[in-house]
Structures are given as C-alpha cells and as structure tokens.
Amino acid sequence: MARAPVLRIGNTLVVTVLEDLHDRDAMSLQTELLGQLERTGATGVLLDLSVIEIVDSFLGRMLNDIAAGVRLLGAQMVVVGIQPAVAITLVELGLELRGVRTAVNADRGLALLRRLVNAALYQVTMRPGLDGRNGKGNAHGHR
C-alpha cells in the first residue's frame, strides 16, 4: 500500500504511514498488516506516525482496532512518533488510545517492542498447566 508500506525486518513488521490516510486506506492497512502477520509469523509491529499531522476519531479508533487485532494474532504493536499537537487533540477529543502501546520515537519504540515480545514469550512458557512447564526451562516440570 503506497500510503503506508509494510516492511519486514526480522521478526518485526515496520509500517511507516507516509501521508494523510483516507478511511479506506486505514481499513486496508488493517487487513494488510494482519494478513502479513499471519503469513510471516512476525512477533512485533512498529507503526510510525511521525509525519501524520491529523488523527481524527476514525483513525484513532482504527489504531485501537489494529492494536487489538495484532494482539489477537499473538503479536505486539508499538505506535511511535505521535506529534505533540496530535496527542493534545486526541486527548481533548476523548480518545486516549489506552489499548495502544506508544513510544516517543522509533528507537524507544523498538526497545519497548523487544521487551514486550520477550515478556509475552516468557508469559507463554510460564503459564502453569498449559504444557506442564514451570517456567524454568524444565520441560518435565515438578509441581
């Protein structure tokens, strides 16, 4: 998609939104991104909004929906580069995007994404009763 190409780097999909998105662009980004997650088995998504100057309630809701979809596919998403003016507008609009993890820039975003992905992996191995593991790497367990 021209307005928001999805680039795969290792286990991470990097999406840079290049220009103001029409509603249908935002919806096809959702479909495209979740499709690529399924195909590639990527564990993280970094969504860069640093050139975006207007986020209205529709796009805000799409960001929430995309984050929820990514989570349902077992991956983590971090949105980076929200401009200060956009942040102020979103809060006044009543959209705090509580379901969306964010970081101030791509560097911090990648670091956060790495932590989230690792934490999610750890949670899976830690979960008792799921596969008999006790989280210490002992596949046979001894509860």
């Binding site: 207007i54 200060p84 956009v86 507008t89």
Partner: peptide, 10 residues
C-alpha cells in the same frame, strides 16, 4: 499555531 491547526483540522 501547530496545536490549534491540529484541533481545527480534526
């Protein structure tokens, strides 16, 4: 300013 531009456009 930038914030008002964003508010108005939104």
């Amino acid at each position: 300013g930038a914030v008002d531009q964003s508010r108005i456009a939104t």
